[in-house]
Design a protein around this nucleic acid. Sequence first.
DNA 1: CAGTGAGCGAGCTTCCGCTTGACTT
Length: 786
Amino acid sequence: MGDKFPIFVLIGMATKNLVIVESPAKARTIERFLGNDFLVKSSFGHVMDLSESDIGVDIENGFIPQYKVAKDKKNVVADLKKIASEAETIWLATDEDREGEAISWHLVNALELDEQAVKRIVFHEITKTAITEAISAPRSIDRNLVNAQTARRVLDRLVGYELSPLLWKKVKPALSAGRVQSVAVRLIVEREDEIKNFETTSSYRVTAKFFPEGKEDAVVSAELPKRFQTKEEAKSFLEKCTGAEFRVSAIEKKPAKKSPAPPFTTSTLQQEASRKLGFPVAYTMRIAQQLYESGYITYMRTDSVNLSNMALSMAKETITKNWGADYVKTRKYRTSAKGAQEAHEAIRPTFINNETIESDKPAMKLYELIWKRTIASQMADARLEKTNVTIDISGQQEKFMAKGEVVTFDGFLKVYIEGSDERKDENGNGLMLPPLTNGDQLFSKSIMATQRFTQHPLRYTEASLVKKMEELGIGRPSTYAPTISTIQKREYVKKNDRPALEREYARLTLAGGQISEKTETEKVGGDKGKLIPTDLGTVVNSFLMQYFKDIIDYNFTADVEKEFDRIANGQKVWNEMLENFYGPFHDKIKDTQETSKKFSGEKLLGQDPKTGKNVYVKIGKYGPMVQLGDTSTEEKPRFAGLNKDQSINDITLEDALALFSFPKPLGDYEGKEIIVALGKFGPYVKHNNAFFALEKTDDPSGITRERAIELIEAKREEEKNRIIREFEENKDVRVLRGRYGPYISIGKKNFKIPKGTDPESLTLEDCIKISEDPKNEPKKRRSKKS
DNA sequence: CAGTGAGCGAGCTTCCGCTTGACTT
């Protein structure tokens, strides 16, 4: 068809059938399955939402939501509206869950469709059969389900938009609270409390290495089930072992099996990618999106472990081909997650016979992980033989135990083993045992009593937090990653490292008839990239715990979900449910607003020995700070912000007082005063209106004039080295070495140097010329908003 | 890029869930 008759072509091609789905990638796939009479378009998710600038709900008149076409969906809606007006039949094929039903309903409204004429269809997997079946069984929009979504949406809005302003007033501006994020923060704060309050105790664990008579190379690793509380007890046990006889008194063999983990959901994919590949959850999702859009995997935001029949048979075929029929075990998994809506399949390769794909490295790795997990989920159980050997000690009650484990059939273990969040188990004793018979005498190589300490619960990683959230039923596959970003953006929690501390422990060894004692050191408590609450997070959590415990109750979401289900079933009226919730909630908001004081987490640290004034630490308008003196007195108190590595929790009076000593003069240099001060970006030295940041290892309180001069000179030297070209005629124009390579600086503007140009040989004229080419203009930074 | 914090008040901030780009570094 030529360009001659564009209008004719448009009318002539007007589609009979318009199908609307949520995702454009899905639209492309489905279009292939349907004939020429079908045009498949995407809504790009929700098209309508409440306004952002106000509450957007008519609370007085039955909580009616004031929906508007979302700003970034104006074009989508206009486009769809045009096509819809030309189509004979509209098929709404959004996901089969609460949100999907609402999207369909919003489409009816936004596109001004006839609700009676519209055909609502659903499918859980994207296969030709599933889609043809769906087309043959259309239904109408389920208004109960839509109402359940409305209740969900309005409840979240009311909670978020009434709690947040209360925080602005009582704690600090621009904070936020919500049904999901506030619970996520609570989990992290409470975990940190558990760690802080954890009392470490130690006991002595006894392990031994034996060998059977005449087989000195064979090792039987055994452990005493009992632990000794004191070193004396442990020692006396070892003494009794000196010269004792060891004999096998029982051998118990029992078969065991291990089963594979179910296929990936969003949450388990995030966990495994974190454990095995070290990906943060947002990164995992970005790579997964890339794989999905390239057609390599199914949809990546899902809470379902279900696989389509087509996938099951593809898996079976692949496993048979690679390892034989013995390795096949077709399994149908059921979702156990709270509140799962299962609108999609599990995350799996689109073509399971493709073991690898060609892409960039992270995508290939993630694909491989998905492939292995999917394949393993359809493989046979691993069979093991576990052996427990009891070893008697002559003249003693205690018995050693040796545990052996032998894989008799590897099954799914050939492909994949699920990772774990737990600490590595140090009881690696005896995976393989030499052949033994009852009554065999054993000889000890060594018996060791090692002091072991109880360990505090582990801090959350992004992924283990997602796991916990899923268990509690808070958040959805599409929101896990964004929620984790939000609580970090609000500075409620930070991904931080905690340095490991050295700890001494005792070890008693019995070998060659002698007991020796040694003190060893181990590193403990170190943590990398774990989620740690900030002072702000801790204080906001205390506020919410004090006044809104029911909202951040771990069961709140699960409870309201039950109500939403009843609305979806038509057993409950949606706005009555909201009325019941909102009445008491809003009263509590009003009451707290009026009666509670500022909530700053204020703590009295003590008195300044020089002035006798009180020293406080608390959250201020700009974050954690210390205060010297009282606000009630005539003389204004002094304030100072905490350093980045200090916390309200554990700052000492001494540290607090040191903060008031800034800005501090250090003497003169080149006739100008040097001062050291604490700034927004950390401690710095100021001299002649220039700033010199302190290094990490510098203690701001202990900085001397000499050290300050060193810093000044070092920076001057560095500055000098940055200059590639300078021009006498025009001091404004310079060629500099930057973080990303050489560039031209003119006044305050920077310009790129075109490829292939040697920066060393640029003349002033060259520079001016380059700066005039719009190609080399500095790129405008996108505004932070949106 | 480099001081602020009480209180007064203007005007700003904020939720969860569904989707993909724009934009850099």
